[in-house]
Design a protein around this nucleic acid. Structure first.
Length: 605
RNA sequence: GCUCCCAUCGUCUAGCGGUCUAGGACGCGGCCCUCUCAAGGCUGAAACACCGGUUCGAGUCCGGUUGGGAGCGCCA
């Protein structure tokens, strides 16, 4: 099946004539060179000095319109400082030299023969980049994690985060681990844990190893906090809640940034009020900046002076989220953290902690949040937040994976990307930076596609499941299932969701005359009912197959100089009670002679 | 208020300084097919937020403006 799907996505993509242009340059192409370096460099692009340049540039140069200052210089890379991400554009015109920090996605050097030094094509400037990917040593397989807090259902945004992590782990052959962040004892519930696991399983996102429950690791977290304290990287703070609230209010009133002012940072421990409760805070650096080399957002810089000393251990001795994540990620060997960009600010603080601990830095990727159809943050009024709701609405897991993947990640013009293909293609560089909105129309379209791809038996099972969840629950009878399977090829071509599919199949599950709905009743006029009777009269001894019945109907219509529709529609209305259905003659066959005649004769006038 | 992030058709997006009269998909309009509804085929309308800068050349690089979003807890 995987093979089928793979073939399918390739589909008949109309080729734009533009694509043929490639043939123009084929001769000059150097297959070994990078995409950057070999880009359109026909012979004419080599000037008398043998350097590469764009034909247009060469032309302009020959015409004397541009001078040597604009020339591409391939050699003599200036010794620019290149950070782990971003870098410096070196132009021939020094005034144009520029620093880059947002260029994570532009890094293509990996395929560049020139190594980490990549030349900007067709341009007189040079760009130097080093991607975080390069920092990762080759023998180290990535470890990804999904770390939800069990305070509600598995959110659709969380599902996408999980998907991205999972895909990257599967793509690289690394690990995908699951950690339940249940350190908030007030809000965490076992039901929520179950819902998250169920959601993940439904989506087909399997994790490696055992689930880690963060709360169970509190002792370890405390140990690290003590270690920090002992090493002088953390301190005890005896400020009370009331004191801090007052401090924040004063800051707010004065229009100052709201943050802890470090009042216990440098006090001597002897000043501590005896026996008073305290929290442990990180002694964060006060000058300089903390830079996150984010794989999605590029370099994000935070001035340390605006990051206050965060609490590591609460006064009741329990660890805070900041401490717990960092310790757990370290202990679990996590190398990459892909999560919602609502955590971007947290990343800076976590990085400070990691550095204070001297642990290896993880690679962050902060994915933009998903918004509702109106562009606002996804909330209850947008309906469907929990993945379980999507299941109930009749969407397939495969659909969700494909849709969620495309929401913020792309691979050229590809839209239909079955999971095996997604695993093969997925990368971190192609994650988009801007927030995306949910579009149910597109979800429907995609779901319709995957429904058509799903085999009939599996679809029948889904419908049985759906019927079972109805109130009151219904069961799919043997005869119902048999009819359903027979009609499925025609039915599934018409359904956008499983719910729709079940509804459109409803007429297969009943016996005897159908009660026409309003529209169907209109079709069944006296004239139509008489015609129906006459038509039934011609059916004596006919083979009860869709083909034979259709032949009969055509002959009958011609004899009566009616259009086929004038015969078929009343049949449809009587047989199904509705005005739309799969091809009606095929449905006659599915229901069989006896059942069909029972339904039809009931409406004959 | 402070910090951070984002900005191409209605929506998801392609775009990696010249091949952009900006491509695809969903949705919408028209035509074809047709027993209804779909599906399918053909076709149409539809976008680079704005202003500066760099450059021979900017959707693409830089800065600003505007607009959206996120965060500023002894929550996670």
């Amino acid at each position: 099946m995987a093979e089928d799907r793979r073939r399918d996505h390739v589909g008949p993509q109309p080729r734009r004539p533009k694509a043929e242009d490639e043939s123009r340059n084929q001769g000059e192409r150097n297959p070994g060179a990078s995409r950057l370096c070999d880009r359109r460099q026909p012979a004419e692009s080599h000037g008398e000095d043998g350097r590469h340049r764009h034909p247009a540039q060469a032309r302009l140069e020959r015409q004397g319109k541009i001078g040597p200052r604009s020339r591409c210089q391939r050699d003599g890379y200036p010794q620019a400082g290149a950070g782990p991400l971003g870098g410096r554009v070196i132009a021939n015109n020094p005034r144009q030299d520029q620093d880059f920090r947002h260029s994570a996605r532009r890094c293509r050097y990996k395929t560049c023969a020139a190594g980490p030094l990549a030349r900007v094509p067709n341009c007189h400037s040079l760009r130097i980049h080093l991607s975080p990917v390069a920092i990762m040593t080759d023998n180290q397989k990535p470890v990804l994690r999904f770390a939800p807090s069990p305070t509600g259902m598995l959110h659709i945004g969380g599902a996408r985060t999980a998907l991205f992590n999972w895909l990257y782990a599967r793509h690289t052959g690394g690990k995908f681990v699951l950690r339940i962040e249940d350190t908030d004892r007030e809000r965490s519930t076992p039901q929520a844990v179950a819902a998250i696991i169920e959601g993940l399983e439904w989506l087909g996102l399997d994790w490696d190893g055992e689930i880690t429950y963060q709360f169970s690791r509190a002792a370890r977290h405390r140990e690290i906090a003590e270690k920090l304290l002992a090493e002088g990287n953390a301190y005890r703070c005896y400020a009370t809640q009331e004191e801090l609230t007052a401090m924040r209010e004063a800051q707010r009133a004065a229009g100052k940034p709201i943050r802890y002012d470090g009042r216990w940072r440098d006090r001597d421990p002897s000043e501590a009020p005896a026996g008073a409760p305290f929290v442990i805070r990180l002694k964060a650096p006060q000058g300089g900046e903390t830079i996150i080399h984010d794989i999605v957002q590029g370099d994000v810089r935070f001035a340390n002076e605006q990051l206050d000393d965060m609490i590591l251990l609460r006064s009741d001795g329990t660890p805070t989220y900041m401490l717990a994540v960092v310790v757990d990620d370290y202990d679990m060997g996590v190398t990459h953290i892909i999560r919602g960009d609502d955590h971007l600010n947290n990343a800076a603080r976590q990085m400070q902690l990691i550095r204070a601990l001297g642990w290896p830095e993880v690679t962050y990727g902060h994915v933009p949040l998903i918004h509702g159809p109106d562009g606002a943050k996804l909330s209850k009024r947008h309906g469907a937040q929990a993945v379980g709701e999507y299941r109930d609405m009749g969407y397939l897991p495969e659909t969700m994976r494909n849709y969620l993947l495309r929401l913020g990640w792309s691979h050229g013009n590809d839209e239909i990307i079955p999971t095996p293909q997604a695993i093969e293609w997925f990368n971190l560089e192609s994650i988009g930076k801007s927030p995306a909105r949910l579009d149910f129309k597109k979800l429907d379209n995609l779901n319709a596609h995957y429904i058509r791809e799903t085999d009939d038996g599996a679809l029948a099972d889904e419908i049985a499941h759906l019927l079972g969840r109805k109130d009151p629950p219904q069961t799919l009878s043997a005869i119902g299932r048999e009819r359903l399977i027979k009609a499925m090829p025609a039915l599934k071509e018409r359904a956008k969701t499983l719910v729709e599919l079940a509804a459109s199949a409803e007429f297969l599950f009943t016996d005897g005359a159908r009660e026409p709905d309003a529209a169907a009743a209109k079709i069944l006029s006296d004239d139509a009912r008489r015609t129906l009777g006459e038509f039934l009269g011609t059916l004596e001894g006919t083979d009860w197959t869709g083909h034979a019945l259709e032949e009969k109907a055509r002959a009958f219509a011609e004899a009566k100089s009616l259009k086929l529709g004038q015969v078929a529609q009343p049949v449809r209305a009587a047989l199904t009670g509705k005005t739309t259905s799969p091809p009606i003659f095929a449905m006659l066959e599915v229901l069989g002679r006896e059942e069909s005649l029972k339904r039809l004769t009931a409406h004959v006038l």
